[in-house]
């Protein structure tokens, strides 16, 4: 039993850090534009499949494949912002972006089926199929690699946002768009940057997680939604909350998976419903005071 718990904890943390990685993308675009990419999951899928092509078909090293996946999804972020965000943010209807980003994700899914076929494809782990003994349990090295890279990236993004000039400019746009524009910050470019970062984070998540699941056209939707649950749980404007939310949801899922595989699928949503019933702006989000 203890063995199972230990294994569930490690797998939970690795899946959870992927959720946290994707959710960090929601955070960055939400604070800068008030919108987010409901197709993050499909960007994750493209990251995985493109990475697969680089790594398996072209035989590039895993590190280069990661770089390729991040670059391609980052570039796609520019396109996404152009066709699905910028044109609809002027609209009166506040939820246009929900459907425009979902529309892009639908198109991406079809494209992925055309390019890579509808089947699940095995992504060989760069660390081999063996397990390493940590404590009492055998753990896939890929899981540890995921935790290290994903959490490292989350922290690197936060340092970028808080310490670098470019990152501070982005945060300035988030705090006050007009004031940032008056200070000479190119706001539209910062918005593009936010979507590039967000998309690249999803792409990175995709190539990281593919070796422990499979890579295929329909792999993205559920992780994308679960990452959204993590972001909502932590509070969309709270990066630390989002990180914790991602890890909690990942671990919770694996723990309940020990008891019953049906529970594993449903627990995230039950959990987020309960959390929102208690605190409607996320457990760690802040309550807004309405200014009248």
């Amino acid at each position: 039993m203890l063995l199972k718990l230990w294994q569930a904890l490690i797998s939970g943390l690795s899946v959870g850090s992927i959720y946290a990685l994707i959710a960090q993308g929601y955070y960055i675009t939400y604070i800068t534009t008030g919108a987010l990419n409901f197709g993050q999951g499909e960007f994750l899928m493209i990251g995985a499949l493109f990475g697969l092509t680089c790594y398996v078909v072209l035989g590039l090293p895993y590190a280069l494949a990661i770089l390729g996946a991040v670059l391609v999804t980052g570039l796609m972020g520019i396109v996404l912002e152009r066709i699905a965000i910028r044109p609809v943010m002027r609209h009166a209807l506040s939820l246009s972006w929900v459907l425009s980003t979902v529309a892009v994700s639908i198109i991406l899914k079809n494209a992925a089926v055309d390019l890579w076929g509808p089947e699940q494809i095995k992504f060989p782990s760069p660390f081999g199929e063996g397990v390493v003994q940590i404590g009492p349990a055998g753990i896939f090295p890929q899981e540890l690699f995921i935790i290290a890279v994903a959490l490292g990236t989350v922290f690197a993004i936060q340092i970028f946002l808080r310490r670098s000039l470019l990152g501070k400019a982005l945060m300035a746009v988030a705090f006050n768009r007009n004031a940032a524009a008056v200070m000479g910050i190119n706001v539209p470019r910062m918005v593009v940057l936010a979507f590039v970062l967000s998309s690249a984070l999803a792409g990175l998540g995709g190539i990281l997680i593919a070796p422990i699941t499979f890579a295929w056209a329909y792999m993205g939707t559920v992780p994308g939604i679960k990452a959204f649950a993590a972001a909502i749980f932590g509070g969309l404007e709270n990066p630390i909350g989002i990180l914790i939310g991602g890890l909690i949801i990942g671990v919770l899922e694996q723990l309940f998976g020990i008891i019953n595989s049906n529970l594993k699928e449903g627990i995230t949503f039950l959990f987020i419903l309960l959390a929102l019933a208690i605190r409607p702006t996320g457990l760690m989000g802040r309550q807004e005071i309405v200014k009248v």
Partner: peptide
């Protein structure tokens, strides 16, 4: 719950 938070309730 408003905006994305309400969306999450319904998605869940």
């Amino acid at each position: 719950a408003k905006g994305p938070y309400l969306a999450m309730v319904t998605i869940a």
